[in-house]
Amino acid sequence: MSDDWPLFEVFIRSRAGLEHKHVGSVHAADARMAIEHARDVYTRRQEGVSIWVVRSADISASDPEEAEALFEPARDKVYRHPTFYVIPEEVKNL
C-alpha cells in the first residue's frame, strides 16, 4: 500500500497587486492538503494573500538546451525598448 504523497509546486501572492511567485514545493496527498501545507510552510510570517498549488508533474518547462533558440533572438530586437528612439528634448509627453 502506498504512503507516497506527490510533490506540488507552490506559488504565493504576497500582497494584493503582485503576481504569484514560485516559492518552493510541498508533499501532499491531494490539492486541499497541499494548500494547507503551503499555508503552514510558506505564509507563517504574513507573506501571503493567495496560494496556488500545482502538481509538479503537471508543470511544463522550457528545455535549457533550447535556451539559445528560445531567448537569444529577442536580444537584438532593441527597437522594442524605448531607449532605442532619439526624441529631441523640446518635445514633451513622448
Binding site: 504523497w5 510541498v26 508533499h27 501532499a28 492538503m33 494547507e36 501545507h37 503552514d40 510552510v41 507563517r44
Partner: peptide, 11 residues
Amino acid sequence: PALEEDLGLAN
C-alpha cells in the same frame, strides 16, 4: 506522521 503535519500541529 509527516513533516508537514509537524508544522500543521505546531500551528
